[in-house]
Amino acid sequence: MEAELIRHLLTLLDRFRAHRDREESTIGRHCAADGAFFSRLREGKTLTARKYDLVVGWFSENWPEGAEWPADVVRPVKEAAE
């Protein structure tokens, strides 16, 4: 399961970068408070479910206009303010 979640994050990163001219480390600093976050994932490091949710949430909130969200990655639903 963890390998699938990491694949989802790397897919989001690749799609995001295809529409925004940003370095991987810059995106890592913004979404995970860690410039080496994505390189560490590629090296086999692990992550928590909480960190996954945080990063996917950041991507969802900052997703480029007109970019297609990957079909195999569940996008968080923004809750309505009460």
Rank of each mutant, 00 (worst) to 15 (best):
A32C: 05
E65M: 11
H8Y: 01
D72Q: 10
M1H: 13
E2R: 14
T11V: 07
L41K: 06
D21K: 11
T48Y: 01
R20Q: 14
I27L: 15
R42H: 09
E43L: 09
D53A: 14
R20K: 13
E68N: 12
G28L: 02
G44S: 08
A49E: 12
E4Q: 13
E23W: 03
A18P: 10
L9G: 00
L10N: 15
V73N: 02
E61N: 13
T26G: 07
L13E: 13
P64L: 09
G35I: 01
E43V: 00
K45I: 00
L12R: 04
V77C: 10
L47T: 01
E43Q: 15
K78S: 13
L9H: 01
A32Q: 06
A67F: 11
D53M: 07
L12A: 06
L5R: 14
P64G: 12
A71E: 15
A36Q: 13
R40Y: 01
L10W: 04
A49S: 11
W69N: 05
L12P: 02
L5C: 03
A33T: 08
G28Y: 05
F38L: 06
R29M: 09
R15G: 08
S39Y: 11
K51N: 03
A80R: 11
T48H: 01
F37T: 04
F38M: 04
R15C: 11
W58R: 05
R42W: 06
T11P: 04
M1L: 10
R40I: 01
L5V: 01
E79Q: 14
L47V: 01
N62Q: 15
T46I: 00
